[in-house]
Simulated assay, not measured.
Amino acid sequence: MPEPHLDRRLFLKGTAVTGAALALGTTAVPAASAAPGGFPDYTHVRTLLTPAQLAYNPTGEIIFPTVRGVYDRLSASGRLGRYYLYYAPHDAPGGICLAYGDSLEGPFTEYPDNPIVSNRWSPHYSVSHVSSPHVMWNADEKEMWLYFHGENTTTRLARSADGVHFTYDKVVLTTAMLPSGTTETSYARVFRHDLPARGARYVMVFMINNTTNRRDIGWGWSADGRTWAFDQRPLVRHTDVGAVNVGGPHLLHRDGSTYVVYNKDKESGGDLMITEVGDDFSLRRHLGVFYDSRGSAPENGRAAAPSFGTDGGVPYMVYEAGERLAGSIAMARG
């Protein structure tokens, strides 16, 4: 049978299966359903990466992990490991980085030639920093597509056949595409998701900031992952969930519906929250805390920017843990 939409096949009824790292024939095991929406109850296990252990460490901080299984995408002779973990410093100069390993529980090895994308890419751009890597396997093109920001006003796309060496493609989102007063459009993640009424096959979720310096979550849709239209209203407003700011969104799918998971700022509790938006994005059911960040070190009351995957049918979440710009990349098991 044909392969399903990979980034949509996140959670199937009674099991936990994520599109971040799936091969055909993967068998999922039943998972406890304790989080809102019937999702697994994730528990912190260990730290995967800290800035101090990295050779490329220009600013002493790393953020925004994305984990992708490549064992069913790249040839055994051409890949570095079964899983690729992308991350970045945020502050200038930033730089899109890669680590690789054979298990989502680690260890992960830093790629020796990081950053794989820097803040200068002639003739395409020269900016203070690039950050927030989200890599999507594009099954239509048989490529890894990297979405990243630099500056905070601009989200860009680069493409790769091997997940390591990228070719610049284009700008996909800027503040000019949203209402007047928008000052940031960044931290975007893109997923394969059909919206027939809009003629779309891909959905983007991202963070919006404006002149009030209060952050919301926006969304857009695309037929090809390159040319986008954007809703001029936020998908989730910070005021909807009693937060000062929200960001770091990720889509999940379960039992015939779609959800967005995102982080609240530490002022508002620092937890991961979940809102059901429905397969057509017409719902706004705010379901509360998806992951409580207060339970274990090194989170120190803040979890953010989650990415999801499976290993041997077991669900995992890879995320930022700890103070913003002073934390680590951690892993939780469902």
Rank of each mutant, 00 (worst) to 15 (best):
R82P: 05
H44N: 07
G19E: 01
A76S: 14
V70Q: 01
Y42Q: 08
G19R: 00
A55H: 12
R68S: 04
A16L: 01
P51S: 10
G25H: 07
F39N: 00
P51M: 14
F11T: 02
A28W: 03
R82C: 05
R79P: 01
R73I: 08
T26S: 14
D91G: 12
T43Q: 15
K13A: 11
T26G: 05
I62T: 01
L24A: 14
G19F: 03
Y86H: 01
F64N: 13
A92E: 13
T26Q: 14
A76D: 15
A32F: 05
T27W: 08
V45D: 14
F39L: 05
A20P: 03
S77G: 15
A31R: 00
D72W: 07
A31N: 10
G78F: 10
A23V: 12
A20G: 15
R82F: 12
D91S: 12
Y71R: 11
H90R: 12
G60S: 14
I62S: 03
A21T: 02
G19H: 03
F64G: 03
H44I: 12
G69H: 00
L24F: 07
R46F: 07
Y83C: 03
V67C: 02
P36H: 08
L49S: 07
D72R: 04
L54W: 06
P65A: 02
R79Q: 09
R73D: 06
S33M: 11
Y42M: 08
A20D: 08
R79E: 09
A31Y: 01
T59L: 04
R46L: 15
R68I: 10
G37M: 01
Q53H: 09
F64H: 11
L80E: 10
V67H: 00
L80V: 14
A31F: 01
F39Q: 01
T47A: 03
L22N: 04
P89W: 00
F11S: 04
V45G: 04
Y84Q: 07
A21R: 00
G37Q: 05
G25W: 05
Y87H: 08
G25N: 06
Y71V: 08
D41W: 04
R46M: 13
I63M: 09
D41N: 14
A28C: 10
D41F: 05
G38S: 03
L24G: 13
A88C: 08
G37K: 02
A92P: 14
A35G: 06
P89V: 00
K13G: 13
V29W: 13
T26N: 14
G60W: 10
P51R: 11
H90Q: 12
G78H: 06
A52R: 10
T47D: 06
S75A: 15
A35N: 09
R68N: 10
P65C: 04
Y87Q: 03
Y56W: 15
L74Q: 12
I63L: 14
A21K: 00
Q53R: 11
